[in-house]
Nucleic acid binder design. Structure first.
Length: 639
RNA sequence: GUGCCCGUAGCUCAAUGGAAGAGCAACGGCCUUCUAAGCCGUAGGUUGCAGGUUCGAGUCCUGCCGGGCAUACCA
């Protein structure tokens, strides 16, 4: 089933070609959701633009268009209205919307509300989370993990082939000191790794760091371990493996608690690329180094790339065809992308180039997304520009350029509007932050249970389960409902607030719907809840005919918004703006609440009306569940 | 210095070039009817300033003011 906007576009294009002929094919009908109910449901803004182009009055064009459109769209729309400078206001017929809703198939395990998958799916690499080994995940990893996971879910739902990549920080000079320290402090970890566990990885890291700074003999051994690690010496490799494994024991429970999809199979950390770096750098130096100026000149307009040694470091420089540096440093001097340090070591730019090589040439990605913080924008600009200049983004076996995108996000701030820190000034640990969110959610539920008017009689098990879902959901929703690019202020009180655009509000709307079904089942007037309520939905149709009617204004609005889900998803996926989905879900939940207040379901006037309203409830619940699912947030049956 | 991002109601934030919106806080209503973690109502604006492009600018361009981030060997 096509979205409302798409169907309107088809009609408008037909009408445009009738009055304008062939030149109409390139015209966008500019269908938009109306900004206000008084203007209808949708509007077309095409007439204003055409007025200029055809040198006619926009209102005259709109009039001619509407004359053709009225019969074409008679099934779908009320007669069109022309307003203001030439807006065409579009009002959908309730019977048409009801038929669209009726056509949505019943729910099931892979429910997609009848939405069609993308006709031309891409293979998309999503790089996100990327914890550092031997350090705890802290609040700085929160957004990458949550946003990246949601983007992966959204694109997969749309039918794209998503390849998750967790580029963990499992390589680098810091491993020298960690390994040296491990061999001193915990040698049994090498002989019997399964039986020995570090209690506190963070403390271990700090101790190693301290010794590295204070004890020259230790620092010497640490350097030797770096060499041993790189050359693949077995006991050093084993120690390294042990440290990585200990880190997994920390972050995998965080992933499970957050409900992110990342698994061990998605890990392709820095170590994976380590033995490719030297060859990569040598090849670049050979092709674009000083002796290689005879290479092919860049195609017109493309930047030229050179690889030069500067201040002892090996650097990539990009220049315009006119020779002007594309990236400039403080004094206007060319800014290099350093791919080998003066001490011979490689660094993150090198690894990122190797990773793009792999993702483009071996994973065959059509699109590569990097979900990292906005401060890294310049780095990715340089890496992407380099890769484009190398010609990697136009593989021979594809006709479309590989899309490289930095999905940047703002920082998480404390109430003081500074980067969120603990009172002691250290990073806030993610595990502790989640624990506090759940604990606060639990306190809210217990307070409500202590109130005789609000008490639902939850079991202890239910309280724990609801607190977990609400607490974690609140953290994730608060993050995802922000415009990704701006910084946001972290506040437990706001994200767990009982009102407003929060996870608890949406989850409450869902639970209310489920409550109707439970009550209906006991009274024998609704099909009831399926036994496996988490994964299936009651087949709400086929009751007394089961046809949906949209008579009351609240029914009409609810039905319309359910039908709009697919166009919201398209917009969110296109711009990777997840807050479009949260705004939509919040609006849908609000509309449902109004419907709930005004339109009795179980005690509707007639069995037909009851059946219709039950189906609206079912569709709303499914939309909320799927929508929250795309955010990685689960719903609960009661709260 | 240069580059990127931001500046919208008291506060926190939305708004693919199309007719300025929520939530919180404030004030006033609604629980013998499906969950009041709810609903209804009132109030709140020269979208930082000044120009420009456009039929139309919060949105695009230029300049200024204010803030954040980045800017050669950590990621």
């Amino acid at each position: 089933m096509k979205s409302i906007a798409t169907q309107l576009e088809v009609l408008f294009k037909q009408a445009l070609s009738q009055i304008l002929g062939d030149e109409a094919s390139s015209i966008d009908p500019l269908i938009r959701v109306a900004t206000d109910d008084k203007f209808g449901d949708y509007q077309s803004n095409v007439a204003m633009g055409l007025g200029k182009r055809l040198n006619q009055k926009p209102r005259d064009i709109a009039t001619r268009l509407v004359e053709v459109l009225n019969p074409l769209a008679a099934d779908m729309c009320q007669p069109f209205e022309i307003a203001g400078p030439g807006f065409i206001n579009i009002r959908l017929k309730p019977e048409w919307m009801a038929r669209q809703l009726d056509a949505i198939p019943a729910g099931g395990p892979d429910d997609r509300l009848g939405m069609e998958p993308a006709p031309d799916p891409d293979r998309v690499v999503v790089d996100y989370s990327c914890p550092n080994i031997a350090k705890q995940m802290h609040v700085g990893h929160l957004r990458s993990t949550i946003i990246g996971d949601s983007i992966a879910r959204i694109l997969a739902f749309q039918g794209h082939e998503v390849i998750r990549q967790n580029h963990i920080g499992d390589w680098g000079t810091q491993f020298g000191m960690l390994i040296a320290h491990l061999k001193d402090q915990c040698p049994e970890a090498l002989t019997d790794p399964g039986q020995v566990h570090l209690e506190d990885l963070e403390a271990f890291y700090r101790e190693a760091n301290k010794r590295d700074k204070e004890d020259p003999a230790f620092a010497e051994r640490a350097r030797a371990e770096v060499v041993a690690l790189h050359s693949g010496q077995s006991d050093t490799r084993q120690a390294w493996q042990y440290i990585v494994e200990e880190s997994r024991r920390h972050y995998e429970p965080v992933y499970r608690r957050l409900g992110v999809l990342l698994t061990r199979e998605d890990e392709r950390g820095e170590s994976f690329y380590a033995d490719r770096l030297e060859r990569l750098v040598n090849n670049l130096a050979k092709q674009y180094g000083p002796g290689a100026s005879a290479g092919t000149p860049p195609a017109s307009g493309l930047p030229s790339i050179t690889v030069e040694e500067s201040e002892g470091a090996l650097c990539v420089f990009l220049r315009t065809p006119e020779g002007e540096p594309i990236f400039k440093g403080p004094e206007g001097n060319p800014l290099p992308l350093i791919i080998r340090k003066s001490d011979g070591a490689f660094l993150y730019a090198t690894t990122d180039l190797a990773a793009l090589d792999f993702r483009i040439h071996e994973l065959k990605a059509d699109r590569v997304l990097y979900v990292t913080g906005a401060p890294q924008a310049l780095h990715f600009q340089m890496v992407f520009a380099t890769v484009r200049a190398l010609g990697w983004t136009i593989p021979e076996d594809k006709n479309e350029e590989v899309r490289l995108e930095h999905v940047a996000f703002g920082s998480v701030l404390g109430e003081d509007r500074k980067i969120l820190k603990t009172r002691a000034g250290s990073n806030v640990k993610l595990a502790e932050l989640l624990e506090e969110a759940v604990r606060r959610a639990e306190a809210l539920i217990r307070a409500s249970e202590a109130d005789p008017d609000k008490r639902r009689g939850f079991s202890e098990e239910e309280i724990q389960d609801i607190a977990e879902a609400v607490g974690i959901g609140a953290v994730k929703y608060a993050d995802l409902s922000q415009n990704r690019q701006s910084d946001y202020v972290f506040s437990f009180d706001k994200m767990l607030a009982l009102e407003g655009n929060t996870a608890p509000y949406l989850m409450y709307a869902y639970a209310r719907i489920r409550s109707i079904y439970r009550k209906g089942a006991t009274e024998g007037v609704a099909p009831g809840l399926p036994s496996d309520a988490q994964d299936a939905h009651a087949p709400a149709g086929n009751l007394a005919g089961g046809a949906i009617t949209l008579d009351e204004p609240q029914e009409r609005t609810l039905g319309k918004q359910i039908l709009q889900f697919s166009e919201i998803l398209d917009a969110a996926a296109e711009n990777l703006k997840i807050n479009l989905i949260t705004d939509y879900l919040y609006g849908l939940a609000g509309t449902f609440m109004k419907f709930y207040e005004n339109c009795p379901v179980l005690s509707a006037d007639t069995p037909e009306k009851r059946a219709s309203r039950l189906r609206l409830c079912d569709l709303t619940a499914r939309t909320l569940k799927i929508g929250l699912g795309l955010l990685g947030i689960r719903v609960v049956e009661r709260m």
